[in-house]
């Protein structure tokens, strides 16, 4: 009670010296884990989407099980799962390597990647399926190979549909990345909490952290939008 009434704001404190260094290193970690996870999630998501679209049943089922499982369980639980359970599911060599390096970071990347990939796979699949069948037919009838038809006709149209939801998945990923602090990844959120426990200036620390998340998201979405405008003009052929 007393403390609340007499609380003195001290923005200077969290924005300078050691605390500021902590925040900067937190920002770098957040950016690293988000960027790496996004890249891997795009790759994995594309692979899973392709699996689901093959006419080969076992692959379809694996793809379906993957998306349903990871989209329908809480991310927080998945993060703990990879952190405590990875030595059960991953090969021995991979685990050795992970322990020798930054294990928390790696577990966080795996969790965020797999979770986000499940959503991305669905966006890609539904984007491609939304292109009318007659487009593939017309391209094949004109002599294009299956790959050329996808490259020049189907995918360019599908991208226009897929890109907006992919942007929102990317932004979700950045926000979701704050959860990995529970396994000890020293991201922005982790650092803000650490500042709170050292200085009791939690309000300032979390406000700054919030603003940092907000700016990262805004900058990322701006960049993607600019890139897309350029990119979409390029991919026609």
């Amino acid at each position: 009670m007393d403390r609340a009434l007499n609380y003195q704001f001290d923005w200077q404190l969290v924005l300078s010296g050691e605390y500021a260094d902590w925040l900067v290193s937190g920002v770098i970690t957040t950016l690293e884990i988000s960027a790496l996870s996004l890249l891997l999630a795009m790759l994995l998501g594309t692979i899973v989407a392709v699996m689901r679209m093959t006419k080969f049943k076992p692959l379809e089922w694996v793809g379906l099980a993957f998306t349903e499982f990871f989209r329908n369980t809480p991310l927080l639980v998945q993060i703990y799962f990879w952190y405590y359970g990875s030595n059960q599911v991953l090969p021995e060599a991979v685990n050795k390597w992970l322990y020798a390096h930054d294990f928390e970071f790696a577990a966080g990347v795996i969790a965020l990647t797999v979770y986000t990939a499940a959503f991305i796979a669905e966006e890609i699949r539904s984007g491609i399926y939304s292109i009318p069948k007659n487009q593939l037919e017309a391209s094949r009838a004109g002599g294009l190979s299956f790959i050329q038809a996808y490259r020049y006709v189907i995918l360019p149209q599908a991208f226009r549909i897929i890109i907006p939801p992919l942007i929102s998945q990317s932004l979700n990923l950045i926000k979701n990345s704050s959860l990995v602090m529970v396994i000890g990844v020293m991201d922005i959120f982790y650092m803000a909490r650490q500042i709170e426990s050292y200085s009791f200036h939690g309000f300032e620390a979390f406000t700054v952290a919030t603003l940092i998340y907000l700016s990262i998201s805004l900058v990322v979405s701006l960049c993607i939008n600019l890139y897309n405008k350029h990119f979409l003009r390029q991919i026609s052929y």
Partner: peptide, 8 residues
């Protein structure tokens, strides 16, 4: 022009 360029 798509098919002439890409196919032929």
């Amino acid at each position: 022009t798509l098919a002439p360029i890409k196919v032929k």
